[in-house]
């Protein structure tokens, strides 16, 4: 299937008081049309910056230094990173072709305006329709998204909504113009699990029934296992592992992915086994040296890991891992007992 979005060797830097931080390092991603990609990682890994770079909404001190971001609009190739940030072309993309959902629903909605109008506004912005048509369309969408009593809700203000309902409104804003690609940045992190389940079912339905492509940014591995087709694991600005959901979650190869998976207790976990932890803290992007970013915390580390930029190696069908300690079959060496117990 053809790709809707391709990132090729994207590097993003941020200018801060102390100098320049290299936040994204050679990030390459391919997103097939109609698929569900999850980008996972802990705070500071660059997953949100990746999303911001795609829609050209990096903070003012951030900049795509090199690489290309290509978006395919019905076969037409658009080089996003060459478009003017707030030019008409880019604004036509945002909201209309690429929808966005954020974590913080309260500050993303304007408290002074009725919710329905805020959703209709993006319709009026991007499409040539009348206000009444827009209203009908929004109410229809509210119904589809499981917002009860949509006519009355259309006239309500954001504070009258619960967190879960506000997130549904955000989804409505993101999808009302029927974009092909929807980027959701931690959309359920602030919500309860039962509400999260409802929202995720909704997103998955939109993918399956309407053929939309989703990029979900999250830190929750278990959630990834329930929704993703493809997974990209990020650590300190790099994609360290990429593959389909079975490859990455059932058969993780990168030491970081493995640790991340084993550090979350499962409902079926054996309580006698300790959770796996990763020693130390994620280093600051300012302290990164040229070798593997994970070298300082990796139990498998060798001198070679610290001396070169680690290439992305392929195993099987498009399962890519950024680790030089894997053998030809993609297995990590056995740790000595002492090291394993440490």
């Amino acid at each position: 299937m053809s790709n809707i979005l391709e990132l090729k060797d994207v590097n993003v830097t941020f200018n801060v008081e102390a100098g320049q931080l290299h936040i994204l390092r050679d990030v390459s991603l391919e997103v097939p049309k109609g698929s569900f990609l999850c980008v996972v990682g802990e705070s500071g890994c660059g997953k949100s910056v990746t999303a911001q770079a795609i829609v050209q909404l990096l903070p003012d001190n951030g900049k795509v230094e090199s690489g290309s971001i290509n978006f395919y609009d019905q076969g037409e190739k658009l080089e996003i990173n060459k478009l003017e940030k707030f030019g008409s072309r880019m604004r036509g993309l945002r909201g209309a072709k690429i929808g966005m959902i954020f974590q913080d629903t309260l500050s993303s909605l304007n408290p002074a305006h009725r919710v329905g109008r805020q959703v209709a506004e993006s319709l009026l912005q991007h499409m040539d329709i009348s206000k009444d048509e827009a209203k009908t369309k929004v109410i229809e969408l509210f119904k589809k998204l499981g917002i009860p009593d949509p006519e009355r809700r259309y006239e309500a203000y954001p504070h009258e909504f619960s967190g879960g309902m506000r997130q549904r409104v955000m989804i409505a804003i993101a999808t009302v113009c029927e974009p092909d690609l929807v980027i959701a940045d931690e959309p359920t992190t602030a919500l309860d699990v039962t509400i999260q389940a409802q929202i995720m079912t909704l997103l998955k339905d939109l993918q399956k029934s309407a053929g939309k492509t989703f990029i979900l940014i999250t830190h929750n591995m278990a959630l990834v296992s329930e929704v993703a087709d493809h997974v990209a694991v990020m650590y300190l600005g790099r994609v360290v592992e990429y593959g389909n959901v079975n490859q990455v979650l059932r058969n993780p190869r990168h030491p970081y992915t493995q640790a991340l998976l084993q550090s979350v207790p499962s409902l079926a976990a054996d309580k006698n086994i300790e959770l796996k932890t990763v020693d130390g803290q994620t280093p600051s992007p300012a302290d990164v040296t040229k070798g593997c970013e994970f070298a300082g915390r990796c139990p498998f580390v060798t001198d070679a890991c610290r001396e070169q930029v680690i290439p992305l190696l392929s195993f099987g069908e498009k399962h890519q891992v950024r680790c030089i300690r894997l053998d030809e079959k993609g297995n990590l060496p056995k740790l000595s007992k002492a090291a394993a117990n440490d």
């Binding site: 699990v193 409802q198 079912t201 591995m221 278990a222 296992s225 329930e226 409902l267």
Partner: peptide, 17 residues
């Protein structure tokens, strides 16, 4: 049933709220 869990997919009792 709402808690995502990669080891228990399809094995849990389901009540969707």
């Amino acid at each position: 049933s709402a808690v995502p869990d990669m080891n228990l997919q399809g094995k849990k009792k389901q009540i969707a709220l």
